[in-house]
Amino acid sequence: MSPRRERSACAASAPATERPLQAAQAWLYAAITGADVPPDSDDVLVAGHVGVGTRLGIYRHAYRARLEECLADDYPAVRALIGEGRFARRCAIAITQHPPREPTLNRYGRFMPGFLQEQRGVPAAAADLARLEWALVEAIHSPCGEIVDVDALARVQPAQLASARFHADPSLRVVVSRFDVDASLATFQRTGTCPAPARLPSAVAVQRRPSGLRRTPLAAGFAPLLAALAAGQPLSAAISTIPPRLLTQDALAGCFRRWFAAGFLVGVQS
């Protein structure tokens, strides 16, 4: 008797619904998400006028197609950059490595930047472009910033400045890259074609305003400061993220003026 027959005989002695319900569901889950249709499928499912392989194939296809579509929706520029075929192949690997665990797919694609970074044969800039696209997804699902309090900083006593923490627009995301990913994304949104991002350090602030998503280029040297402040670090700690050569009073004052005016920072707690 072949191994397949042995497995079939075992399954036939315990039809799916005579097994615990959980075992039946675990079997079907594996049959849908696994690499191949299980050999005992005919013993568990009814064939009728359509083969069990075809029946399972509908679910197997739908599972992968739905998740790939979700990733394509979240990362259209990455897809255009690396090509549809290569994107689909990477998605197939990603879906196997990152099966969904949450009831909604809104945040399913969050692993993609890290996943792409580990992939050989994918342009190095793809992971950074994915970070930028994910920042847009997160911003869409974030509240808009409150009314900007541009004079807040002026009211902080000098002695309290070091320990001051800033309130950022809750939709704000800061994306720092070795590549000019924002320029490539802008070209993609204009033309549908995503050129390879130039190797040029860049930083961009992403936020949601009532009028829609907004991307604002940042001075790359100061972007980590904004990111640290948005993460809730006190000014004294956040300021250590920027190179000492940039630390002039005028430069800092200019940054804070722009950041408050742009609504990146919306208040300060001294």
């Binding site: 619904t17 039946a24 675990a26 679910y59 739905r66 998740l67 969904p100 665990r101 797919l105």
Partner: peptide
């Protein structure tokens, strides 16, 4: 049912009747 053992297929899977 859509998933089991903490994993979700995001598909409407048939229940044993």
């Amino acid at each position: 049912w859509t998933g089991v053992a903490g994993r979700n297929t995001h598909d409407l899977l048939p229940v044993p009747l």
